[in-house]
Design a protein around this nucleic acid. Structure first.
Lengths: 244, 244
DNA sequence: AAATAATGTGTTTAATTTACACATTCATTC
DNA sequence: GAATGAATGTGTAAATTAAACACATTATTT
C-alpha cells in the first residue's frame, strides 16, 4: 500500500489558476486530419508533401495550429475546408497525441481527426499541387509521429465501419453492392463472402433501392442503392453483448 | 461543387512555425480524470468539491494543467497519483474537449481520461478531505462542462466493458461471479440473466478458479476467481462482424 | 449466336444467444 | 440439530445469427 501524500483539495485560487492558464503552462495545440478516400477499389489517404526544406520529400498529415479563440472541432472543419474545399464531410475526433518530444518546433500537442470523403467529387482538386492520394498499404514513413497517428486512425476506421455506417460516406450517393463490398474489403483488408455480405446489409434494412442500374460497366450492371441515414438514426442499436 | 480556394501547400517556414508554436497560438491544456469505482454494488465516481469560492458546493472532476515539458499521458498518471496515491491504475484517454468558452479562467482545452480503481484498496484515503465517491446515478450538476465529460465517459465505459476486460480492475483480485455480474449490471444499468452470464464468462475461458470460496457472507459462499490477463493478451479478438 | 463475366438468389449446417427451473450448499433460526 | 431461508450452481430446448457453399440470370463483348 503506497504511502504517498494525497492532495486532498484543488489548492489553487481562481486568480492563481487564471495566471497559470493565461501565461505560464501554455502549449501549442494542433489538429491533424487523416482524410480517407476510396478510389479504384483502394483505400487511400490524403497526404501533403512537406515544403519545409528540412523535411523535403516527407509526407505528412494535413494539420494546422488551433487558433486561440477557435473551438477545437471548428478548427478541424476549417482545416478540411482549406484543404479540400468542402464542408459537410464526415469528421470525428480520434485521439490526442501529447508526447513531449513529438514535434521539433517546440511543444505541440495534436488532436487527430479522421475524415472520410468521396474521392470522385474531389479528384480534380489535387492534381497540380502538393496534395496526393496514397494507398494506405504503401504509406511507410511520415513526418514526425504522423505514422503513429495514421496507424491508430486505420485501426479506428476498421473498428468503426463495423458498428457505424460512416464508411458509406466514402462512396457516391448511389452505389452498387459490389462497390460497397469492395469498400469493406479494402478497409478491413479481408475478403468477404458476397452472398453473406448482401444478406447482412439487406437484413439491416437501411439500403434503399434506387430503381436504377449501374451504367458503363463492362458486364452486367448491378442495382444502385442509397443509404437511409434517417432511418438509421432512428433505429440505432446500443447493446451488443459482452465479448472479448 | 464549392469554389473555395484550396490551400495547396503548408505555406509556413520552419522558423515561422516555431514562432507560432513558441509564442502566439498557445493554449492552456489540462487533463480531467473520470475515476470510476465500484462499491456496495454501485458504480461510483470520484469527485472533488471545488474550493474556489466562486464555485463552492459544486463538484468537479479531478484535473490539472499539463506541464510544458510533461507527456500528456504522464500528466494523467501524475494527477491520479496525486489524488489517489496510486500508480498502476487502469487509465485510458477518452476524448478531448475544446469548445472555446468551456472554462471561465481562459482558454483551456482538456483531455478526458477514464480511470478504474478498486475502491476497497483506497477507501480510507478519502475520508477526511474534499474527495467523495458519488453514485453515478445521482451525479447531476458539475463544474463547467464536466457533466458533459462525465456523460461521455459513462457511455465510453458501457461500450468498453463489453469488448475489453477493463471492468475487472474495479473488482478485488479475487472475486465471485456474483460480484462480477453485479459490476456489469451496475455499469450497463441492466439486469442480466445469471446463468447466461456465467456461461458467457466461462466460455471466454479467462477466469481462473482460485480454489477458495467467499468468506463472511450471510449465505452460501460463492467460488472465487481471478482474471487471466496474460491469456487474454495472447488471444485477443479483433474481428467482430459488421452490425449497426 | 456464343462466350464471358459479373449479378442475384437459397439452403443447409454450425454456432451463438436467449429463455427458463430445479437441486445444492451454507448460514441462520428455532 | 432440524428446519428454514437465500444465494450458488448447473442443463436443455428454442430461436436467432453466422458460415459455408453452387447455380441460374443478365448484360456485354466477341
Amino acid at each position: 500500500m503506497p504511502t504517498t501524500k494525497i492532495e486532498a483539495k484543488n489548492s489553487k485560487t481562481f486568480k492563481g489558476l487564471q495566471t497559470e492558464v493565461q501565461s505560464i503552462n501554455r502549449i501549442a495545440l494542433s489538429v491533424d486530419c487523416v482524410i480517407f478516400g476510396f478510389d479504384e477499389n483502394k483505400l487511400k489517404v490524403l497526404l501533403i508533401r512537406s515544403d519545409l526544406k528540412k523535411y523535403h520529400n516527407k509526407f505528412s498529415l494535413l494539420g494546422d495550429l488551433v487558433k486561440p479563440e477557435e473551438d477545437l472541432d471548428t478548427s478541424a472543419y476549417r482545416i478540411l475546408k482549406q484543404r479540400t474545399g468542402l464542408n459537410d464531410l464526415y469528421l470525428e475526433q480520434v485521439h490526442t497525441f501529447g508526447a513531449f518530444g513529438r514535434h521539433p518546433a517546440g511543444r505541440v500537442v495534436t488532436v487527430a481527426y479522421c475524415s472520410l470523403i468521396n474521392v470522385q467529387h474531389h479528384k480534380l482538386k489535387t492534381l497540380d499541387n502538393e496534395l496526393h492520394w496514397h494507398e494506405v498499404d504503401s504509406v511507410s514513413e511520415l513526418l514526425f509521429d504522423h505514422k503513429k497517428i495514421f496507424d491508430l486512425c486505420i485501426e479506428w476506421l476498421q473498428k468503426r465501419v463495423q458498428e457505424h455506417p460512416l464508411g458509406l460516406s466514402l462512396l457516391p450517393n448511389k452505389f452498387s453492392l459490389r462497390e460497397l463490398q469492395n469498400l469493406y474489403e479494402a478497409i478491413l483488408d479481408k475478403k468477404l463472402d458476397r452472398r453473406n455480405f448482401r444478406k447482412k446489409f439487406f437484413s439491416m434494412d437501411y439500403l434503399v433501392d434506387m430503381g436504377e442500374d449501374e451504367q458503363n460497366v463492362p458486364h452486367r450492371p448491378g442495382r444502385l442503392y442509397k443509404f437511409d441515414y434517417e432511418k438509421y438514426e432512428k433505429n440505432k442499436k446500443t447493446w451488443s453483448g459482452i465479448d472479448f
